[in-house]
Nucleic acid binder design. Structure first.
Lengths: 341, 341
DNA sequence: CTGAAAGCGCTTACAG
DNA sequence: CTGAAAGCGCTTACAG
């Protein structure tokens, strides 16, 4: 199939011959600069008509090479498969298209090498800007891009060498924890152990800030913040499941509540309950830092934090559009708390 | 930020000067054809070293223009935000990269105009092939691409003018319905009304096939297949919710079971139960044609069909690799049924 | 083993 | 109002 179809493509020269004019004129009609060149409307229409009949499609590599502008904006993203990242991808495309920029997304699976590889490919295609979402080492990417003259913006995880837009993780976590503790305080039977924190990595900025919010809210409610109640053993479902299993084994007690740091960790927590009696779920108070439509219907009343992706993307694109900011600007967007009906 | 950073980029000419050799030699070293040109290893190493020091990055638009090969493979996709489509996107990228093709994905929101627009852009960037996933009118896209010499492959929704890879919707629906009816037959209290089908569109191939499987399984179990039990009022959550509300109002009865056609429709069904008493959910038998990890934990035992994306993508790429097939080949991949523990 | 030169398909300053 | 020509940064057939 492939080879057979690769017939010769129509160029501006072919059209020039058919229209009995020059390639310059055709090029200028087809790229919209014909008015400023004072080309006659009659000629413009003639050229447009022939181009349409011949199925002309501009060759962007030639155009971009000449113009020194690719018209492409790049983004790297850890994954597509949860509501947070997939809406980032969708809104990125929408905003890019609204500006006549072609969006180029690469999914990099939180693999540092793949992140660099994807960025290198994008640089080869001469993307004009790059948005680095949830990059493991944003500054490394920024340095690479800056050395090639390409501006970058960080999203979700902040860096120090390019402007960053992230959720206000501290206040989101503080609010979520406060709400969980307040629900708990109204329960007739307070249940077993302490409120615990599960999921994420101590090494990443977001997890650190969320833990700080979690601990501060505990203090506000008069609870001793204990390090042993924080189990940031990784985002992956099995890491979260292990963490929960471990604390139940160790304390011999179900926690009274759980702050789950991401939907992917929530899967792990749910797996544990599935194995050890889904009925137990009713006894605890559950919160998740991230939103998933099905989580609402879980057996327990669950509180969720929904990150404000539209506002975050809006900030990113105001910088893409040229808004002046400090090179290490950090913009934090408040997420909203979702309380099941 | 943007403009300031756009400094001059290093070209093979700059490197030629530094290495005291010609641009041809540099080009050939850097694109890996130097051995067949019998360039000395010493020269190759010298050039590589300087290129690395100078932060050289090949300009793919120049390279592609000259070679008449962009190295890009395109895909359009209705959306990212469910497990089925997001895993299609991830696997597409993986398979493309494994072949040194750069994956370019556009999310087209089931909007026919956006689908054509996205494909046109990709054609301008001279993608070598296009995978059309879930396109509303695959044949229209195929015609457009073929007229420009670009082969296409349909995924998820089939067309008649290009090879298609889809799930075996009929047998998946037949199996899911049979399993639902068999679960139902073992229930002490069979509950209210008939088993119903909710979600999707009568106009699309997949929905039609699934309805056929649903009806045939009903026949096998001795149930009269009734048109009024099929409510393909659209995929959107609110359409599904309305459909359910309507049938309950009309019959004055909860259906004994529901075949939900996609996770997005499942959201609508769950919304109805949320409003009208989530406890009711226990009374019915639920199946979903699509898989979502959280659906497992819903209050009802749910059966799910998980489409086999890895095998589907594998078939697509064997054609990308040049496997000969009929121009209207239809490859159906059996999905698997997932029965909650 | 290496280089000069043509050409991919555009855009745009220049000339008229 | 329009055209000839240069040039974007590569690749590759040709010549030596």
């Amino acid at each position: 199939v492939g080879k057979a179809l690769n017939k010769k493509r129509i160029t501006i020269y072919d059209i020039a011959v058919l229209a009995k004019t020059s390639a310059s004129t055709v090029g200028s009609v087809l790229n919209g600069t014909w008015k400023s060149r004072r080309i006659s409307k009659a000629m413009a229409q003639k050229v447009e008509k022939i181009a349409h009949e011949q199925g002309y499609s501009v060759n962007m590599q030639a155009s971009a090479l000449r113009r020194k502008r690719s018209g492409i904006i790049g983004m790297i993203l850890p994954m597509y498969d949860n509501r947070y990242f997939s809406s980032i991808a969708q809104l990125f495309e929408q905003e890019a298209r609204a500006r006549d920029l072609f969006p180029m997304i690469s999914c990099t699976l939180r693999d540092p090498e793949l992140e660099v590889e994807a960025v290198r490919s994008m640089l080869n295609y001469r993307v004009e800007q790059i948005v680095c979402t949830g990059a493991t080492d944003p500054d490394k990417i920024t340095e690479l891009c800056h050395s090639r003259g390409v501006p970058t913006f960080n999203l979700d995880l902040p860096g120090t060498k390019a402007p960053s837009v992230i959720s206000d993780n501290y206040s989101g976590a503080f609010d979520l924890t406060s709400e969980l503790l307040s629900v708990l305080s109204r329960k007739p039977d307070k249940g077993g152990g302490d409120m615990i924190f599960i999921g994420g990595r101590n090494s990443d900025h977001n997890t650190k800030e969320r833990i700080r919010g979690f601990q501060d809210a505990n203090k506000k409610f008069g609870n001793q913040p204990r390090e042993s109640n924080v189990l940031a053993w990784g985002y992956a479902a099995d890491k979260a499941e292990n963490a929960l299993k471990n604390i139940v084994d160790r304390t011999g007690n179900l926690p009274s509540g759980i702050f789950v740091n991401s939907t992917i960790s929530l899967e792990g927590v749910m797996n544990w309950f599935q194995k050890c009696g889904i009925g137990e779920l009713k006894k605890i108070t559950l919160g998740c830092f991230d939103w998933d439509p099905f989580a609402i219907f879980l057996d327990s009343r669950i509180l969720m934090i929904r990150q404000n992706v539209p506002d975050m993307m809006h900030e990113i694109f105001s910088m893409v559009d040229g808004k002046k900011v400090k090179p290490n600007e950090l913009i934090e967007i408040k997420p909203t708390i979702i309380i099941a009906p």
